[in-house]
Design a protein around this nucleic acid. Structure first.
Lengths: 232, 232
DNA sequence: TTCTGGCATATTGTATACAAAATGCAAGTC
DNA sequence: GACTTGCATTTTGTATACAATATGCCAGAA
């Protein structure tokens, strides 16, 4: 044989439990700050405590839980500073992805991306928000793949997952949406021109705008006391 | 009371085991690619398998181990591509740290850093390598602290730990050493001038040089077949 | 009333027993 | 001789029992 491997996906019990917990956290069934009782959770998931505890360790490493010695695990309650910090790092990572992508992109890739951009603009014109989000994600994934850096991709994914636990629906008003689409167009152009610095700046700026939107939405949630924040 | 907490450090057994394993990996007692037998390791560490397995999860999250279902854990054997990727990300993170530091640094901080820089140059003049490394690290830590971004700091630390597992003693020849010290001086100056872009470029370049050194040393090791790499 | 101390209960931490899967070896087959 | 097949052994995976720790309550003292 040629040595290539085709491992079939076999989820272990701790992995499956972690996946389920992740969903529960993102869905909001386990709200920020919630204390996770091992016995109760293991019964609800139909799993014994041992694999559940390994799932806890995985989620803690992802920053979705915090574990206190002898006091169990609880869902993280991200502070505004945490969100800011995470976005700052994600911005740097996106910028890096852009620079790397420029160094590796082929004309064929650029063609694909331009096609995606056209689709995205069509979704925008048709006010099709779900399609917009889907294509947006496709473009982002493609850029990340172009960077060809597994460490980068994994780090980015982890941070992204952590923020998703916030469950914000970034209230995309028309003006912001227009701007986002325009920024995307500029990105593709910078990439086509192989202008890494410009692409980097665009990506960083793009993310900064998103950060602001999330922080605003968080502030609103806090006002409504939905983030588990302690009120004096 | 004012609500501030001062938790005394209480290491749990899984944490302690992870710490010990980390050391064993970095020391090279557990070389890249080594298979970790749970029973044997638990006996050697004087810990039962349950906490040991949690330690495995932690180290796997840090990227020091890989866990294969039903086949246990083994020490990662980083490829050159992995090292390149990790350094690229670390460069972006250092660059970000520099930019953030510029935004937050005070004159007092700059004074401290200049003092450290002087110490470093003294160590350099006296050819005191250990002192150089120590002060080098102090400066770096100070810069990171100035960035005031916990996510950044934690991400950086994790990546750094992963690379330390390579156990390279970056063979610092005199020319490179001179250059590194000069670069550090330029960094402090850029920081004092509040020139974020310049500081960023310096940090990224500084790290790129380090990356090259590590990749070279890895290549040498590979030639001597010390990295557990598969030879065709 | 407020604080302290001690006890009962609940919860997490660790070890271990049992189950499931992988590995290695040897006998049998082509 | 090389390849398969089945079995014994080893190793990992999961559940559970027991230990250690934390939590909450209540009585008693300041």
């Amino acid at each position: 044989m040629d040595g290539s491997v085709f491992p079939i996906a076999r989820s272990t019990l701790p992995e499956a439990a972690a996946e389920r917990l992740r969903a529960l956290i993102i869905e909001g069934d386990l709200p920020p700050g919630a204390k996770l009782n091992e016995r109760e959770l293991s019964e609800r998931l139909g799993v014994s405590r041992t694999p559940l505890r390994e799932a806890f360790r995985m989620l803690a490493a992802d920053g979705l839980l915090v574990q206190l010695p002898n006091r169990g695990a609880q869902v993280v309650a991200l502070s505004a500073a945490d969100v800011r910090g995470a976005f700052e790092v994600m911005g740097a990572l996106e910028g890096l992805a852009g620079e790397l992508a420029v160094a590796r992109v082929t004309d064929a890739d650029i063609g694909d991306l331009k096609a995606l951009q056209a689709e995205m603009e069509a979704a925008h014109a048709g006010r099709d928000l779900p399609a917009y989000y889907r294509i947006n994600r496709l473009i982002h994934d493609r850029l990340n793949a172009l960077a060809d850096n597994a460490v980068l991709q994994q780090t980015y994914r982890t941070l992204n997952a952590r923020l998703h636990a916030l469950r914000f629906r970034s209230n995309l008003n028309p003006a912001k949406w227009d701007q986002a689409v325009a920024e995307h167009r500029a990105m593709i152009e910078a990439l086509a021109a192989r202008d890494g610095a410009a692409l980097r700046d665009l990506l960083v700026g793009h993310l900064r705008a998103k950060q602001q939107a999330v922080l605003d939405s968080m502030k609103n949630k806090d006002d409504k006391n939905l983030q588990g924040g302690k009120v004096p």
